[in-house]
Simulated assay, not measured.
Amino acid sequence: MATTTLPEFLRSRRERLHPESTGRRRTPGLRREEVAARAGVSVTWYTWLEQGRGGVPSDDVLERLARALELDDTNREMLFLLAHARPPPRRYTPPSEVTPTLQRVLDSLRVPAFVKTPTFQIVAWNRAAVAVIGDYAALAERDRNMLRRVFHPEAATFLPHGEDMRRTALAAFRVDIERAGASEEAAALVDELMQTSEEFRRLWAENELSTHGVKSRRFFRPEVGELLFDASTFSVDDSDGLSMVVLSPADDASARGVEQLLNDHGGR
């Protein structure tokens, strides 16, 4: 089956729009000249675009067409994929709140899991995360940030082999904030850590980049000793950049340790 083309996509979205006038029309949707006027492009050029001979539109023109055609985020992404074979640039907005459904997903897990923003701010967590990592609710909001925690001078008390975690977390942070678009929050966090952490300055200068992937993470709790996890990160749809991190015990000893900590913190 043939895939959708850019001309087909533009025509179909134009025909779905309701004209502002109330007069009867022979064809559905807006006329080409109406879309062109909304987007600030010439009627001739837009007509060629729908005919497959208008050339490759710039990002700016695609954004104007997306607004003119009243596209939601999914259709805006499809517009860019059809025109440029890549997603559109991210438009940074403050991440949305965690939904009750997502919180129920977290609460159903017997392994540590939490939800973070592109700037690594922790906005939701489950009981296992509290048992293994610490009680986020007891922290001030600014201190619920992964980078602030792993680059804190006292991080060594609960993060054995913290060098690897700091390096991989920072490499993923750099990718996340670029995907999300520039933000004052990200810039302020980087400036702060550049001033307060010599190790942050050293690692930031290395300019290392990586996606989250599956990473090994080690935590130390006096009650059970060292715990080894495989950390997996999952994007949360329709959430303006939120992602969920799940820490799966990497061996039987770590799984038993998590269960013991959960029981010590009140079980289910």
Rank of each mutant, 00 (worst) to 15 (best):
D143N: 07
A155P: 01
A128F: 12
L159N: 00
E163F: 11
Y136K: 02
F158L: 00
W125G: 08
V123K: 11
T119I: 07
V132Q: 01
D135S: 11
D164K: 14
T119W: 15
H152V: 05
G134V: 10
A129D: 02
Y136V: 09
T119Q: 14
R148S: 12
V150T: 14
L139I: 03
Y136F: 15
A128R: 04
N145P: 05
A138Y: 07
Y136R: 05
V130C: 11
L159A: 01
H152K: 04
M165Y: 13
A131F: 12
V123H: 09
G134Q: 08
I122P: 06
E163N: 05
T157N: 02
E141G: 00
R127T: 14
A138Q: 12
Q121Y: 09
R142T: 07
R144N: 02
G162S: 10
M146A: 13
G134P: 05
F120E: 15
T157D: 13
R142Y: 01
A137I: 00
G162P: 00
A128Q: 05
D164Y: 12
V150E: 10
D143W: 01
A124K: 05
V150A: 08
F158R: 06
A138V: 07
R127E: 13
F120K: 14
P160E: 05
R144G: 02
V150H: 06
Q121H: 15
H152C: 06
R149Y: 07
A124T: 10
A156T: 01
R142C: 00
R144D: 05
Q121E: 15
A131S: 15
V150I: 13
G162H: 03
R149L: 14
D143G: 04
P160R: 01
A129K: 00
E154N: 01
A129G: 06
R144T: 02
T119V: 15
G162E: 01
A129H: 03
A128L: 09
R127G: 11
M146T: 09
I133V: 14
L159F: 03
G134T: 08
A155S: 14
M165F: 13
R144P: 04
A131L: 11
G134Y: 05
I133M: 11
N126K: 09
H152R: 12
H152Q: 04
E163T: 13
G162V: 11
A140T: 10
R127I: 14
P153N: 03
P153F: 03
R144F: 02
M146W: 05
L139K: 06
L147V: 04
A124I: 10
H161E: 12
R148K: 14
M146R: 13
A137R: 06
R127P: 13
E141D: 12
A140D: 13
A156H: 13
H152M: 01
E163Y: 08
L159G: 00
A129P: 03
V123G: 04
E141A: 10
R149F: 11
Y136C: 09
E141Q: 09
N145K: 03
A131P: 11
A156L: 00
E141N: 03
R149W: 03
I122R: 10
I133N: 06
A131G: 09
